[in-house]
């Protein structure tokens, strides 16, 4: 599923005295099956941007096109259920959203909401938990008894379990140890390579951009500065210096 942003702007608090334009005329294209990294400083509009990918926010101006879904400011929320089934979004610190009685319940929650049969949802949940390396004896424990790193894996599994065609991740490895970081990144990459999932990932790690991404989008103050390949980005030393970006 390809993704296209056409002149997308987004304004927060449109009715208030001081509206805030978080996205300014964003245009880019993401190919099916690619891994795209979004980089930029805090407050550059990355989180606002990814909330457009499954229709949590609708563009104030312009249009977001994902496969045959068109989202603009007139789109009705009810039509977005099908889109959300195809686009899995994992926000920052997803372990803060766990709620169910057991790990398995929490991981199958999404699948059941999206209309999978209970037996299939449970099977998918077990598969994604195994993929993320969560030990089987945790399956019937309460998610809150797990360690932070394990909770993160459970939360990630909760989205992978309904097999989204597009996977959006907001700093999936923030706060993990180097080993956990490497494992999670390897799993994300394997989803792209083996299952052709289109992946969009917000990150602050230039190493991840260099090692895993096919395309990189650089944001600053709500504007898109560049949409390019990591190779070209890291060769453009003056640009990196000018925008305070590091090298891998």
């Amino acid at each position: 599923m390809a993704i296209q942003f056409k002149n997308v702007s987004y304004v927060y608090h449109q009715n208030a005295k001081q509206p805030f334009e978080a996205l300014k005329n964003i245009n880019f294209h993401i190919q099916t099956g690619s891994l795209t990294a979004i980089i930029g400083q805090t407050g550059s509009g990355k989180s606002t941007l990814i909330r457009h990918l499954n229709g949590l926010l609708h563009p104030t101006k312009g249009e977001v096109i994902i496969d045959h879904f068109h989202i603009d400011n007139k789109t009705d929320d009810a039509n977005l259920y099908e889109l959300r089934k195809k686009v899995g979004v994992i926000f920052q610190f997803p372990e803060h959203q766990l709620f169910a009685k057991t790990v398995l319940d929490d991981v199958s929650f999404g699948s059941i909401n999206f209309g999978f049969k209970k037996s299939i949802a449970i099977k998918n949940a077990k598969d994604s938990l195994k993929l993320l390396g969560v030990n089987e004896h945790w399956f019937h424990q309460a998610p809150l008894e797990l360690s932070g790193g394990q909770m993160r894996r459970v939360a990630l599994a909760g989205v992978l379990a309904f097999h989204p065609k597009i996977l959006v991740l907001d700093e999936p490895t923030a706060g993990l140890d180097p080993n956990g970081h490497r494992q999670i990144m390897a799993i994300i990459k394997s989803l792209q390579v083996e299952q052709h999932v289109t992946i969009i990932m917000v990150t602050h790690s230039m190493n991840d951009v260099a090692n895993y991404a096919d395309q990189v989008i650089v944001m600053q103050n709500g504007k898109l500065l560049q949409s390019t390949t990591p190779k070209k980005l890291f060769q453009n030393i003056p640009f990196l210096k000018q925008h305070h970006l590091g090298l891998p």
């Binding site: 259920y81 979004v89 997803p94 999404g110 999206f114």
Partner: peptide, 8 residues
């Protein structure tokens, strides 16, 4: 937002 993304 997170729960909506999980189909709620």
């Amino acid at each position: 937002d997170a729960q909506k993304s999980r189909g709620v």
